[in-house]
Design a protein around this nucleic acid. Structure first.
Lengths: 153, 153
DNA sequence: ACATAACATTTGTATATACAAATATAAATA
DNA sequence: TATTTATATTTGTATATACAAATGTTATGT
């Protein structure tokens, strides 16, 4: 559906505006649908994102800086995000002995189990959208997005 | 820049995952850059969005339902969003005489002036990204996004 | 060694958002 | 006309986020 119709606009946007609105709107559609999936598991999208980052560490601890720079949305508060995960025993948190400024965050077995349970649902979610495009179009969309966002100085 | 590099991933994502992450991440880049623009004017992105909807009404009042269905992100609280705009005298709010359940929201001259001042900056913002693509690619990106998000039942 | 700067994280506070329940009005039905 | 249902908005509450300032630790320069 055209973005103008989604947003009930009576006038057509120009191409530059359309891309911005299309991107913002599409991201919202994806995020809403994703939130439906994780809602029963009582974690937020951001919390899920952190768990994924920690699993990607493959046993190596991640400090706050690392988590922050790998997150989709650079939240200003990784501390409180990790707090929430800690309360649910999905991660552990310890002061790094080599550099006491740093905090070592690790995913627990419970956290890994949660991700394993979610994996097929997340895969299904991703594919429910991507199946609307063929292989070539998927590659094209990825390429265009990467090209689009890159600010040239 | 590849999404894997942006998110400091050591492994490559599959195509479906890449699109989701690319979309989420790109939206964040755009939103962050947009927030920079409006920050000096002391309004949030959502508030700007509501003002744009109200200007689009061309003098016709909009009620809460209309505002909500035209917003990029369907916020669960249009009331408090309009509250904020009201405090800054950017909109007026009145009970609709024909249907006292409805609220008529109108943009004020002050609100229109603010938008006029922001217009060139917003245009520049949109074009700073879209200039990375040529005409054909822009059309392609819009088409792919519209196709991608459309859930087939 | 001491002062200063840089780094990593946390905390305070104000604002924003999500969700459900409450309120108020209008329309439909018996 | 009284009752129920539907519609439109608001409010309460809990949680999340943004931003700046504060804290604690390590590195650097004199």
């Amino acid at each position: 559906m055209k973005i103008e119709d989604e947003l009930k606009s009576t006038v057509d946007y120009n191409k530059s505006t359309r891309v911005v609105l299309n991107l913002m709107y599409t991201q919202n559609v994806i995020a809403d649908s994703f939130n439906e999936i994780i809602k029963p598991y009582d974690i937020s999208g951001e919390q899920y994102n952190v768990l994924r980052i920690l699993r990607g560490q493959k046993g190596h601890p991640a400090n706050m800086c690392i988590i922050q720079e790998r997150m989709l949305a650079r939240t200003s508060n990784t501390t409180r995000l990790v707090d929430k995960l800690l309360l649910k025993n999905l991660v552990t948190r310890n002061v790094c002995p080599e550099n006491r400024r740093k905090i070592e965050v690790l995913i627990t077995q419970k956290g890994l189990d949660l991700l394993t349970e979610l994996d097929p649902k997340v895969k299904e979610h991703e594919e429910s959208f991507s199946k609307n495009l063929n292989e070539e179009e998927l590659i094209q969309l990825n390429t265009l997005l990467e090209k689009y966002r890159t600010k040239i100085n």
